[in-house]
Design a protein around this nucleic acid. Structure first.
Length: 556
RNA sequence: GCGCCCGUAGCUCAGCUGGAUAGAGUACCUGGCUACGAACCAGGGGGUCAGGGGUUCGAAUCCCUUCGGGCGCGCCA
């Protein structure tokens, strides 16, 4: 049950409409997926919308439309229901075809060429190299990577990029913190910076620095630049290790420091000045952001000569535009939402023809972690915080990724660590993986009991599927056929949590079927049909899990 | 004070550009393993969709408003 069926049925109704009410536009014909199975496969509410114009009761119009429907080999039935809905039911044969398609396309099933290879950049995580990745970065990594995978599945060419704020005051605070710890370790007088980083990892980095080639030379504890370089390298490497363990890879890392080195920051400032969007006041350089609806103008260059953070941000986003990305999605914590308008305004003020809504943002709320019924307090200043690594170590990569991507981005997230780490029926990720493992197990049994059949080419992909007519089989077929629509919508909405909900429903349909019916029946024809159905379930579960970076184990 | 986001079952959450009797999971209750994996299934109770008003044939969904919560409002990032 695919997009073709949907558009076919829409076409049938449009033709019916042309006979019943030729003056009405075809756009009133829309199809929706009823929540309840007894309302059919598709439902059309057009008659209720037409009632006013046509001055006829909606049920009459619906009845007329049904009678005017052209014949179709895919359409099983069309009936008027409720206040004027037209409920359409699709013939089993049309639904059964999904299995054939799935087995043919295999890993490629669900992929669409709709995006036509358009280049899109997804920027996410972008943590400052001042400490390990925490739980919030984990949510962002899970979200960003899945959004990127979704866009890829729709035929876009995706670049995953990580932006390092490796210049500026925070990095200086990092270097000073490490230096202070290094001096302490050497028994030298030290003063810990006021805005320093207190985590234990700072002392560990100081120890490593002192043990390194650069750090063992005389006066190493004075060399702040060497300390900075060492600390940033260490922390980047650690972040990379954690992301790798999380199954997240980036195509590109972009360094803020390179924007200064390339002169792009200065060039951006010069361009804004040349565009007449700036003025000097109180020894600072201001951008007229109020011209673009901001509530006050913003400082670009402070009176001490340093740029505020949003200048390199604008320079950075200009490179995205110049690198040819007309579609850019930034995944960020909602605590940074004030930067959204400023970056956009900065790009506008350049007068380069960049659209006002550029770039796109997916903002996510914070994560609170519950352990033993209590909130795990996270405080970066105090240096006590739960890292992404802790989460992966405790709950495993699969559960962590599944959990973190399973909620809408803009809802507060309560991560129940006890639930995520429980290897029991309470854990939703195992529910889905279990369905996959069950199919694998059945297929293995089949190969053991019917080796000749299993060895013959096309035993499943060429199976006669006409036996798949039971209510649970029809429900499964419909679910499988809806995969493509789900992906399209999840991609359009940049909402990968929909994958999790789909997976749960698919697994539920399969478990229900599995418990009610036997797959390995003695008669070859229904056996092959049911095995083909099960194999299709396996393919779709595995493909969908791959999009959210979760494995599909054959045994558990 | 201003801006953005949120408020749905005891708890955690879905609910698509407005559609039918608001759905899952979990918890609680009842049943199902000598049948391909019980990490499973079948069934049951559980709701003022925060409150109020409006638009509409139809509102959890859109608009206004009140209340409650989060985040932001810097010559920090």
């Amino acid at each position: 049950m695919s997009a073709e069926i949907r558009s076919h049925l829409t076409e049938l109704l449009i033709r019916a409409l042309a006979r019943v009410a030729p003056e009405e536009p075809a756009t009133v014909i829309t199809l929706e997926r009823p929540k309840q199975a007894r309302h059919g496969d598709f439902s059309c509410p057009a008659a209720m919308q037409l009632a006013r114009n046509l001055k006829r009761p909606p049920r009459d119009i619906a009845q007329a439309l049904v009678q005017a429907l052209p014949g179709s080999e895919w359409l099983e039935s069309a009936e008027v229901a409720g206040g004027g809905f037209i409920n359409l039911r699709v013939r089993p044969a049309a639904k059964q075809h999904a299995v054939t398609t799935i087995l043919e396309k295999d890993h490629a099933f669900g992929r669409s060429a709709r995006g036509q290879g358009q280049a899109v950049m997804v920027e996410f995580v972008s943590a400052n190299p001042t400490g390990p990745l925490h739980v919030g970065h984990g949510r962002q990594a899970a979200l960003g990577d899945s959004i990127a995978a979704l866009l890829e599945s729709q035929g876009l060419r995706v670049t995953r990029e990580f932006y390092y704020n490796d210049a500026g005051a925070q990095i200086r605070a990092l270097a000073l913190s490490v230096q202070a710890r290094a001096r302490e370790a050497l028994g030298l007088p030290s003063q810990f910076p006021e805005d320093g980083y207190h985590g234990e990892y700072i002392a560990e980095i100081a120890q490593k620095y002192l043990a390194s080639d650069a750090g063992s030379s005389a006066g190493a504890a004075h060399d702040l630049e060497a300390i900075r370089r060492f600390a940033v390298t260490e922390l980047r490497a650690e972040q990379d290790r954690d992301l790798q363990a999380f199954g997240v890879r980036f195509d590109n890392h972009y360094l803020e420091s390179s924007l200064y080195a390339d002169g792009r920051v200065d060039a951006t400032v010069a361009a804004l000045v040349a565009a007449g969007k700036t003025y000097e006041r109180d020894g600072a350089l201001w951008l007229r952001t109020t011209e673009y609806g901001d509530d006050k103008d913003r400082v670009m260059r402070k009176s001490d000569g340093a740029y505020t953070y949003f200048v390199p941000d604008v320079a950075y986003h200009l490179t995205k535009w110049e690198r040819g990305y007309r579609k850019v999605i930034n995944v960020q914590g909602s605590d940074h939402h004030s930067t959204v308008t400023r970056v956009r305004i900065g790009l506008q003020a350049l007068g380069r023809g960049i659209p006002p809504g550029y770039p796109d943002y997916v903002l996510h709320k914070m994560v609170t972690v519950m352990r033993g019924g209590e909130e795990v307090k996270i405080s970066k200043r105090a240096g006590s915080y739960l890292t992404l690594r802790d989460l992966i170590d405790e709950a495993g990569r699969d559960a962590t990724r599944f959990f973190l991507v399973s909620r809408k981005a803009d809802t507060e997230f309560v991560f129940d660590l006890d639930l995520a780490r429980s290897q029991s029926d309470e854990n939703p990720v195992y529910y889905v993986q279990y369905a996959h493992a069950r199919v694998c197990s059945v297929l293995e049994q089949w190969r053991a009991r019917h080796p000749e059949e299993a060895a013959s080419a096309g035993a499943l992909s060429g199976a006669d599927l006409s036996a798949l007519t039971g209510a649970r089989e029809i429900a499964l077929l419909a679910r499988l056929g809806g995969y493509g629509e789900m992906l399209e919508e999840a991609s359009r909405e940049q909402a990968p949590h929909q994958i999790c909900f789909y997976l749960r429903e698919l697994a539920a349909d399969f478990h229900s079927y599995y418990n009610a019916e036997r797959i390995l029946v003695p008669e070859p024809a229904p056996r092959r049909a049911r095995l083909a159905l099960a194999a299709a379930v396996k393919v779709v579960i595995r493909n969908a899990l791959a999009l959210i970076g979760v494995g599909a184990p054959e045994k558990m």
